[in-house]
Write a protein that binds this DNA or RNA. Structure first.
Length: 449
DNA sequence: GCGATCAGCT
DNA sequence: CACAGCTGATCGC
């Protein structure tokens, strides 16, 4: 069947807004998950968490809010959708869905689906820490949700699916930030953040230092929507700690600020942060981040870099006299991804992140934790499993890298060329596709693409 | 003029 | 390179 015809008959879409489906699911409100969604949306109902629904009109003013449906966390919800089967054109099928806290940014959830197509878990972006109270609650919620099912396909946030990505818990990283601030008692502090996310970091700083945090006016509105009314301010006179948009955070900004007041910048990020001036060849300050700043070590040369250890990812870095980097990440690090897969024990899985320069198919490192390799651990699920296996062949995988799929088709139409290796290898470098959204769609035949 | 899309940049 | 985002140019309406 031609791709277009199949797209017309999509069942449900997750973080995908092109094509037609019967129901749409939004994991969270970061822009790379909302490409194609706009204030004029009218294609169908959108299911999301309560917090995301609350934030929705802020990102999409004048959006028709009657199209939003809130899914409460940890509870199964049933949807009745038109059967995609041609032989039962007027009948309905039931799809069950549960939203589970993804511990990413505010409002972010994973979606667990059950239906004729089997059991699918779509993580969206997620962080899977082990120690915090919130993490333990999340773990319990997921195990409760999975107790009767085997996940046939896990759609995984593989942003840091590479053993060189190791960093501490957000609580530990937040304390590193506090320590930096405390060690600069006379300095102004600026911290680079995005329009959503890392609120917990700012709360931690505020509580630890008993200080208000400055944010820009729109961010203050977001903070108020999230229920934080006392901690944040837009008056610079009230605090020396300011959270600023990441795009306005640069060496040039810091140097400019320092002509007026002594100021340091702190960049919370799971990624090495390299500025233009560093790429131009300026020497980093100190030596902590030298490997990050050496571009050649990060540019892919056939994927050989993926196993290189990087000892600097877990600690505070300083590559400019005014700028510190702290490994505070809202995505799971490598070992957390591993823990999560061991917990879920999916039959199969696919990475949802295609934009990384060093995209790693999670099956490369963790395929051994899936499917037949888990026969012993899965013995308790044996009957359930067999039952599923008979139905699941209809579920196929579609990734941005598969040839001939809807993605490839649309990219060709835009006159772009897919470069680099095919996903048949464990590493794909496809910079031409760097801007495509992270989404998936369940098709009439149970296919997800 | 407006929204959607894209290039370029941080 | 880019966790996610902004700005400005361009195109079609």
């Amino acid at each position: 069947m031609p791709p277009l015809r199949r797209m017309e008959k999509g069942l449900i879409s997750v973080d995908r807004w092109t094509g037609q489906s019967q129901a749409y699911f939004l994991t969270h409100l970061h822009s790379d998950h909302t490409q194609g969604l706009s204030s004029t949306w009218a294609k169908g109902l959108i299911f999301c968490s309560r917090l995301t629904a609350k934030l929705f009109p802020f990102k999409f003013p004048n959006f028709n809010l009657s199209l939003l449906r809130v899914l409460d966390l940890g509870a199964w919800h049933s949807l009745s959708l038109l059967s995609p089967s041609p032989s039962a054109s007027q009948s309905f099928i039931t799809v069950e869905v549960m939203a589970i806290d993804a511990h990413h940014c505010s409002g972010a959830v994973m979606f667990l689906f059950r239906g004729e197509f089997g059991c699918l878990l779509f993580t969206g972006d997620f962080r899977w820490e082990t120690a915090s109270k919130r993490a333990k609650i999340g773990r319990t919620m997921l195990l409760d949700a999975l107790k009767d099912d085997v996940v046939d396909i896990l759609y995984l946030d593989n942003t840091y699916c590479n053993p060189s990505y190791i960093f501490p818990s957000r609580e530990a990283a937040a304390q590193q930030v506090v320590d930096i601030i405390v060690s600069h008692p006379e300095h102004d502090i600026i911290i680079g953040i995005d329009t959503l996310g890392k609120e917990d970091l700012l709360l931690h700083i505020s509580r630890a230092l008993k200080i208000k945090i400055w944010v820009w006016p729109e961010r203050l509105r977001t903070m108020h929507l999230l229920g934080y009314h006392e901690i944040f301010t837009t008056k610079t006179s009230l605090t020396r700690v300011r959270a600023v948009p990441r795009y306005s955070f640069s060496i040039e900004t810091l140097e400019g600020l320092n002509t007026m007041r002594a100021t340091i910048g702190i960049m919370p990020s799971g990624l090495p942060w390299v500025t233009k001036s560093l790429e131009r060849g300026d020497k980093p300050f100190g030596s902590l981040l030298t490997s990050h700043c050496n571009k050649s070590k990060w540019s892919g040369n056939g994927g050989n870099h993926i196993d290189k250890p990087n000892a600097n990812l877990g600690s505070v870095g300083r590559f400019h006299k005014y700028i510190y980097t702290v490994p505070y990440s809202d995505h799971s690090c490598f070992t957390e991804i591993e823990d999560f897969i061991k917990l879920v024990q999916p039959t199969s899985m696919k990475g949802i992140v295609s934009s990384s320069s060093c995209y790693v198919d999670p099956m490369y490192y963790f395929g051994c934790l899936c499917g037949a390799n888990q026969a012993v651990q899965r013995s308790l699920h044996k009957h359930k499993r067999k039952e599923r296996d008979e139905r699941v062949p209809a579920v196929c995988l579609r990734t941005p890298f598969s040839s001939g799929g809807a993605f490839a088709e649309s990219e060709r139409k835009r006159g772009r060329t897919v470069k680099g290796k095919h996903s048949g290898t464990h590493v794909s470098r496809i910079s031409a596709l760097r801007r495509i959204q992270r989404g998936a769609k369940i098709m009439e035949d149970g296919c997800l693409n």
